[in-house]
Computed example of a mutant assay.
Amino acid sequence: MSVKSNNQGRAYEFACLNTLHEEISKYRVSKIEKNSTYEAAKRAWNTLEESEKNIYRISALAGTNTILELEPLILDDGDGELELKLQSDDNGQDGDVRDVLIIRKDIEWEIGISVKHNHFAVKHSRLSKGLDFGKKWYGIECSDKYWTDIKPIFNYLDVEKSKQTLWKDLPNKEDDVYMPLLLAFKEELDRQNEFANIAKMLVEYLLGEFDFYKVISIDSKRTTQVQSYNLRGTLNQEGKKRKRSIKLPVASLPTRIVSLEFKPDSKNTLELYLDRGWQFTFRIHNASSKVESSLKFDVQIIGVPTSIVSIDCKWK
């Protein structure tokens, strides 16, 4: 991710956090925890032009209004203070993809929001010569065959890294790096799938261990999309006095892998199809201009069950 894209993402988190605070404060006491992540987001916000800030505010307000309709407990009766906070990116590595937390300690309740600006990526996990992705993602260690298969690929990258070679100068990075590494990854998933239900565990890893809303600003369409990932039924609870605008269904996790193959005419992307409507792509790519001995996945959701509710909120 470029510095500009990273700043835009953090700035949009700042806009969403403060818009939530402003709207909630009209009805109850609300405070923002000003931690180091908040300060980083504030710095990113201050890099924007005023015209950009206005767009971010409008987008954030559209998403906030929908969240307040779906989550009556935010504004429901109670004298307790409501707390808002931004989470560190490290939480995503530990299984929590939520960027913004909305917390009411008086009723021991919280929900979270994953905030995206003009992209729909799920995870940016890495593969490297020493990283056991199976163990890290869902607790199943990779096989000796996997380590044997990837060793020559990363040995090659180590040599090129020592020369300070640029990725663009590799003679054939798709055939020498991307495709064999993805093939080793695919074959390891196939092996693991023979003795464990990795379909369910894989989606739980990709989406995190907590239910959440995803709020995505699509600036070109002047739309904020709100998606509900209510996998455990913790979202959308009724308040004592305030009621939800719609009832969100609980989404079912997959039980099996239907297909895992290379995307047609591609050497850097796998397509994963699971039952119950789940579909993902795994695109492998280099994350810097110079050759490194690790690569990143850009994981995208390309299909979800009908129980994942998506609401397009047009900007006013």
Score class of each variant (00 low, 15 high):
3 V>S: 11
4 K>E: 11
5 S>C: 05
6 N>L: 10
6 N>D: 12
7 N>W: 03
7 N>C: 06
7 N>Y: 09
8 Q>W: 08
14 F>N: 02
16 C>N: 10
18 N>D: 01
23 E>A: 05
24 I>H: 04
27 Y>P: 00
28 R>Y: 00
29 V>K: 13
31 K>P: 00
31 K>N: 02
34 K>N: 00
35 N>L: 05
39 E>P: 00
40 A>G: 02
41 A>V: 00
41 A>C: 09
42 K>N: 05
43 R>H: 04
43 R>E: 11
45 W>K: 01
47 T>L: 04
48 L>G: 04
49 E>A: 08
49 E>H: 08
58 I>Y: 00
61 L>K: 12
64 T>I: 13
65 N>H: 11
67 I>L: 15
68 L>S: 01
72 P>L: 04
73 L>N: 03
74 I>G: 02
78 G>R: 03
80 G>E: 12
81 E>F: 00
81 E>N: 02
83 E>D: 03
85 K>P: 00
88 S>M: 06
89 D>G: 14
89 D>R: 14
91 N>V: 04
92 G>L: 09
94 D>S: 15
96 D>G: 09
96 D>A: 10
96 D>Q: 10
98 R>P: 08
103 I>K: 10
104 R>T: 01
104 R>M: 06
106 D>Q: 04
107 I>E: 08
113 I>D: 08
114 S>C: 13
118 N>P: 09
118 N>H: 06
119 H>K: 12
119 H>G: 08
120 F>Y: 14
120 F>G: 06
132 D>Y: 09
132 D>L: 05
132 D>K: 05
133 F>W: 15
133 F>P: 03
133 F>S: 03
133 F>I: 07
136 K>M: 14
137 W>T: 02
138 Y>M: 13
147 W>P: 03
147 W>I: 10
150 I>Q: 05
151 K>G: 05
152 P>N: 11
152 P>G: 09
152 P>R: 08
153 I>Y: 05
153 I>A: 06
154 F>R: 07
155 N>M: 10
158 D>P: 01
158 D>E: 15
158 D>Q: 15
160 E>W: 12
162 S>C: 01
168 K>D: 14
171 P>I: 03
171 P>S: 11
171 P>M: 01
172 N>F: 06
173 K>D: 07
176 D>Y: 09
176 D>Q: 15
180 P>H: 07
182 L>M: 09
182 L>N: 05
187 E>P: 01
192 Q>T: 03
195 F>V: 13
196 A>H: 13
196 A>W: 04
197 N>F: 01
198 I>R: 04
199 A>C: 09
202 L>I: 01
206 L>T: 03
208 G>Q: 12
214 K>C: 12
214 K>N: 11
215 V>M: 15
216 I>F: 03
218 I>H: 08
218 I>C: 10
222 R>E: 15
223 T>Y: 07
223 T>L: 14
225 Q>K: 14
230 N>V: 08
235 L>E: 07
238 E>F: 04
239 G>M: 02
248 L>E: 03
252 S>C: 05
256 R>I: 02
257 I>G: 00
263 K>D: 09
267 K>L: 11
268 N>Q: 11
271 E>G: 00
273 Y>W: 05
283 R>H: 02
286 N>S: 14
292 E>D: 12
292 E>Y: 02
295 L>F: 05
298 D>N: 14
298 D>A: 13
301 I>N: 10
301 I>G: 06
303 G>V: 10
303 G>H: 12
305 P>W: 06
306 T>Y: 03
307 S>V: 02
312 D>P: 04
